[in-house]
Design a protein around this nucleic acid. Sequence first.
DNA 1: TTGCTTATTGGTCGCACACTCAATAGCATC
DNA 2: GATGCTATTGAGTGTGCGACCAATAAGCAA
Lengths: 210, 210
Amino acid sequence: MTSSVQRKRIRKSPDDRRAEIVEAAATVALTEGLECITLRRIAEQLDVRPGLISHYFPAVEDLVAEAFGSAATAELETLLPADPPDGSPLNHLARFFARTTGPAYDDMSRLWLNARHLSRYRPVLRERVLGQESLWRGRLTAVVRAGVDQGQFRTEDAQLAAVLILVVIDGLASHANTGLGNHPPSVTRLAAATAERELGLPDGALAPTS
Amino acid sequence: MTSSVQRKRIRKSPDDRRAEIVEAAATVALTEGLECITLRRIAEQLDVRPGLISHYFPAVEDLVAEAFGSAATAELETLLPADPPDGSPLNHLARFFARTTGPAYDDMSRLWLNARHLSRYRPVLRERVLGQESLWRGRLTAVVRAGVDQGQFRTEDAQLAAVLILVVIDGLASHANTGLGNHPPSVTRLAAATAERELGLPDGALAPTS
DNA sequence: TTGCTTATTGGTCGCACACTCAATAGCATC
DNA sequence: GATGCTATTGAGTGTGCGACCAATAAGCAA
């Protein structure tokens, strides 16, 4: 008959709970960074006990990888949906470029930086990052290829062009990350020009001239 | 008369000790990452007690910033010496490009990634990163400007061109970091072509055609 | 040689972390 | 309403971290 107050327990199906945990972790990853994914932090956010997180993810590293994968997949689906909605490849690419160089992409670009760095120490995360890179590259390559097929783009190697675009975007993001921040639009314009040239597009076709 | 064995103490001048500590921390930063700069780790490497490190750096964060600054400055001095040795701006730039996209730059490129990410949480480090960015940008801009003056390069805005080159290099490094690793030389070539175009150089002037 | 300054130590504190596991209570099923 | 399965808890372990500080010895100056 100890006076200890017992905690109200809410019991959920393993699938639901797992999904909840991953979602919470993905949110924390995007807003605070992957290293803030701790048992305590996630448990607090879900109002459960740390032990429960451990129960579903015996090793935190697995949860970290899962969270990154979840966030990256969701973001990619927004940027370049698998089943292309209406619009030409040029439209899709222009939107992709505009979004990934815009402020709405800040969190995700930070997360990429974060994940790439951390993946040096965490093998499980590393695999996920490689997987996502390949996914993003594939998706973008498909768009480029479609554009070539429709005569909108002209390039020798679609995949190579896609990688170049990703490299340039990552470079911009990497620089922006410190907060030199929003480099003058001129840099973004120059980066766009690089992509435009590679795809045989006229100046300003991908992003508005500043 | 306790039987505790007393440690042999080696007493050095504050300046020497400080320099020693920063150097050790810079090495750790380059090889293991900035988060491995801990009182215990650095103390162990120098064969002193953790308290001593605290004595010189009451806040570890300051040591981290110092270590990054030291490593970055040393690297820049190697890549783009302040007092240019013999060689034309084109030579200097070509060497800079070759080195920063080569394997010898791996550690430093990882460190940049590391520092940019960490600077999100550590204000002191952040300031250092911004300072180094400005330093690198300035140094590279000077080279570009010299090349323009000598008629080797042709570009409207030297600083803008310099930033674009840095962005492309960072993008390559960021990608390479995960270990997709050494992307095919073709990507590097494409990146070089971007810089060449921006500087009004013929194809292959900056880096050998693959 | 003696004395004094101070660089260095050793010990300790409090905190946050991941991980473990027996006990327990929520809930689907009958 | 009773039963059984298991999702969830509570309590605890051990590790590594930054920070603090009184005591101490190294080595310079007198």
